[in-house]
């Protein structure tokens, strides 16, 4: 546990003292702000069909996720490998799994910090109309759950590539693929079983459910087990490199 905490503390400091982190926060707020402003303009039009503003916001948050996650995770392990500091880390009194979990938790906490200012949007909407805090809570749970899975993918990609850019590109490609492919496959197949299977894997569909206030145990189990599996694979990847 102490190994995880030590790694977590070290990584969090690296995030918060890095200019990249603040640039990321600015980028996220610019993209999210633009989306939010567009939603407000749309719903202010009397010809619009109406809807809950933050439902639209949460449903469209996958666009932001695709760009933010690779930037957050690309340096996690790749940087250590390219600078050679991974050798020092691996000979310290921490296991590979503790290193991976510590680094992953740091990325997850920083990811949550990035989304924190968007609560201001809920406050703005609350000033103009009634607001459903239950739906907002489930919307944020959706962002957290999807982010947790993608950060685990990014952590694994970072352990596979020595180059940070390569790691970022792999993460982006996988996240992009996951967002698009299962939704598309659902509309391509005719079998109900396959449709359900692809819906189960469809993270974008999951986020829609969370955005409208539905919390489904299937989504939570899928996300949690995928994160655990990916972190396990990442730690095994690091262990394997030790013996090459």
């Amino acid at each position: 546990m102490s190994g995880i905490l030590a790694t977590l503390r070290r990584e969090l400091c690296a995030y918060f003292f890095s200019p990249l982190a603040w640039a990321l926060l600015t980028l996220l707020l610019v993209i999210n702000g633009t989306i939010f402003a567009l939603i407000i303009s749309f719903l202010s039009d009397p010809r619009s069909a109406g809807g809950r503003p933050l439902d639209f916001f949460f449903s469209s948050s996958w666009v932001v996720l695709m760009f933010i996650v690779p930037l957050l995770t690309m340096r996690l392990i790749s940087e250590e490998r390219s600078s050679g500091s991974i050798e020092v880390l691996m000979t310290a009194a921490v296991t590979e799994l503790q290193v991976v979990v510590g680094k992953y938790l740091a990325a997850l906490l920083f990811y949550l910090f990035l989304w924190l200012p968007t609560l201001a949007y809920a406050a703005i909407v609350a000033g103009y109309s009634e607001i459903d805090w239950g739906t907002i809570a489930s919307g944020y749970l959706g962002i957290f759950a999807a982010g947790a899975v993608f950060l685990a993918i990014g952590t694994l990609a970072s352990s596979l590539a020595r180059n940070q850019v390569v790691s970022g590109v792999i993460t982006f490609a996988v996240v992009f693929f996951l967002f698009l492919v299962f939704g598309s496959l659902q509309s391509l197949v005719n079998s109900s079983v396959w449709k359900e299977f692809f819906a189960y894997l469809d993270v974008a569909g999951q986020m829609d459910d969370f955005a409208r206030g539905v919390v489904d145990s299937r989504h939570l189990v899928f996300d949690l087990t995928t994160v655990i599996f990916l972190l396990f694979v990442t730690s095994r990847t690091l262990a394997a490199k030790k013996w090459r």
Binding site: T135, A137, Y200, G213, V215, S217, R218, V221, V233
Partner: peptide, 24 residues
């Protein structure tokens, strides 16, 4: 790990529960 992942998710898929967090 892959087998365990598949097994847990199979049962999660078969037996699930949905929670409604909307105020209404």
């Amino acid at each position: 790990a892959v087998l365990l992942l598949g097994l847990v998710n199979y049962f999660a898929w078969k037996y699930y529960k949905q929670f409604d967090w909307t105020s209404s």
